[in-house]
Write a protein that binds this DNA or RNA. Structure first.
Lengths: 231, 231
DNA sequence: TCACCCCATATTGTTGACAATATTGATATC
DNA sequence: GATATCAATATTGTCAACAATATGGGGTGA
């Protein structure tokens, strides 16, 4: 979480929201993402409020924010529960991600400055080190997120950054946790990152978009295949 | 609003939310979209609560939901205010819309069934009638929305539908209201819709995506140009 | 045995009061 | 006259009690 959170701090309006509501949102979000609260589980307001040591007011606001992020579903007079990520929904999410990150990569190829691209290369090298040192799935995932975050931020479109980093990415993180027994092709991903970086360094928007879309499409197929063979 | 709202009812989780919070969200949203509450204006909780005849609780939840839709900005301990849509932000919004609706059109070309396509043709003809009868900018805008809604829903990706119809589209509607003195090229848009429908009827995903992206890109240029020549 | 209804219970929705924080305007000082 | 400080005010954040609605179980009747 270390490195990715540092990234998140720069984009998330939440992390400089020091109110109870803001902190509760982050806490509840992380509990859902890392599976402390399981997929499909009902969110009982009085219980959760006590767990987080807040009253129901801030907790309800937190739940509402997570609803808008797609992590939680809510029915009037019935209550909220954590979403369940069946393969169909995961495929839809990746469809969306492909379009949005494809756009991000295209824009980043034109708009990132030299320092940002240098930082990206640095991230890639650090990531490669981790993988070579067999540093485990955890660092692998974080390195991957950092790389994607940097490109998204490089798009120079705050609205796009918000949609991806603040909303969709927590769903992706949740999927990652739920499928973490599955080692997600670290070598191939690294090669694809390398190619992508090449396109960005050469200021080639079309190629950057193509490679990013392909990269995400492959990740999607890889996860879907894993899920279908599992049970 | 008539026809578009009917469409909205089918997608919006809000419209079957008969709680005070849900109704207040819709009311506040419309007040912002149609300019009753101006861009940049501060949202004073006690005042608004009284205006809508609710207490601050439901009103705060409504505000939070509009924040997540991008209609409102919020700073901790300071308050919420309506977003201001300067040209730069509008351009970013259209960048996003181009990618997302392009995706929607591509998916719709494969996934829409015959009835849905027939309905789309029907909408187009009604729209054409309105334009020929000089029925005014209002019906023009609504007809345009209906057409786009139908395609988005035809994408068969609920997550995409949500992102576009529940979140981004209210921002677009807000822009429409603010720039309504500007007659938005009704004839050309109609022709572009016609071409798009042709691609859908022929089950041509690539062409559908291309035409949709171009359609939105042109709308963007048209609005940006209008805004830059205005003041 | 099954289906239905009704009541007790649990849970969500809403409210008004209280606490914490920011804004402001007035005063004092340079 | 300009700037800084501080207090009064307004506004947001939080809480706990109350109201409205859904859930679940026991009982009744077919």
């Amino acid at each position: 979480m270390i490195s990715a959170n540092k990234q998140l701090k720069n984009t998330h309006a939440l992390d400089d929201d020091n109110t109870l509501s803001g902190r509760t949102t982050v806490a509840l979000r992380e509990a859902i993402v890392n599976g402390s609260i399981q997929a499909g589980e009902k969110l009982n307001e009085p219980k959760l409020a006590e767990q987080f040591s807040v009253s129901r007011g801030p907790l309800r606001e937190a739940i509402r924010r997570l609803v808008s992020m797609g992590l939680v579903e809510h029915k009037p007079h019935v209550g909220a529960s954590v979403v369940t990520l069946e393969p169909k929904k995961i495929a839809q999410l990746y469809e969306l991600r492909e379009a949005l990150e494809g756009l991000a990569a295209r824009l980043a190829a034109s708009r990132m400055n030299h320092d940002e691209i240098a930082e990206l290369r640095h991230l890639l090298e650090v990531h490669r080190q981790h993988c070579e040192n067999n540093a485990g799935e955890y660092m692998q995932a974080e390195g991957d997120f950092d790389f994607h975050y940097q490109i998204i931020k490089g798009s120079g479109n705050p609205l796009l950054v918000h949609q991806l980093c603040d909303e969709l990415y927590h769903l992706i993180r949740m999927i990652r946790f739920q499928t973490s027994r599955f080692k997600s092709r670290p070598k191939r991903a690294l090669i694809e990152h390398e190619q992508l970086l090449f396109a960005l360094e050469n200021r080639d928007p079309e190629l950057a978009e193509l490679l990013m879309r392909r990269h995400i499409s492959r990740a999607k197929h890889s996860i879907i295949e894993f899920l279908s063979t599992e049970e």
